[in-house]
């Protein structure tokens, strides 16, 4: 169920090259009480205002230019990687392989229910808080 968070709104960056996804998923996250900033590409996220910091990233895997995992790898390398949830419209095994390279993370296969994404975000943030870097890889589409 969509329910606004009681505490401070979680700051979420949504990176997807598909404007429909940005609108639909963005709208859903806002309604759930999150503060959402959307980006059309990984480059746009990385070039964003350094003052902006996010509690969680929602990253599409296949993006024009830098892919989601590549982007996340880059952020991890510069020690600036908040927890992340990956989303993808593909279900090829290649996708899994790519994710392995950036360490464990949750990956959701589109289309997903709102609840799945909200839970994934919550888990990612919780796990990052309790055991940094200890998020477990969950099955894409799970």
């Amino acid at each position: 169920m969509l329910s606004p968070a009681a505490t401070d709104p979680t700051r979420i960056a949504l990176v997807d090259d598909d404007p429909s996804i940005r609108r639909g998923v963005g709208r859903m996250l806002e309604l759930s009480g999150h503060r959402v900033t959307t980006f059309g590409s990984a480059e746009a996220l990385m070039a964003g205002d350094p003052g902006l910091s996010f509690d969680c990233l929602v990253l599409d895997i296949h993006l024009p230019g830098l892919s989601g995992p590549e982007c996340y790898g880059g952020l991890q390398a510069r020690g600036d990687a908040p927890p992340a949830v990956f989303i993808t419209a593909h279900d090829a095994t290649e996708t899994q392989d790519k994710l392995q390279r950036v360490g464990p993370a949750t990956c959701l296969r589109k289309p997903f229910r709102s609840q799945q994404l909200l839970e994934a975000i919550r888990d990612a943030i919780a796990l990052a808080g309790s055991a940094p870097g200890g998020a477990t890889l969950r099955q894409c589409g799970g």
């Binding site: 169920m1 969509l2 996804i21 609108r23 709208r27 309604l31 419209a89 279900d91 289309p111 709102s114």
Partner: peptide
Amino acid sequence: AASLAHELNQPLAAILSNAEVAQHL
């Protein structure tokens, strides 16, 4: 086939999110 699945999943995902928001509202 993979490309087609991707092309279909994108709008389906957007539809699902939007529908759930509407339902909640």
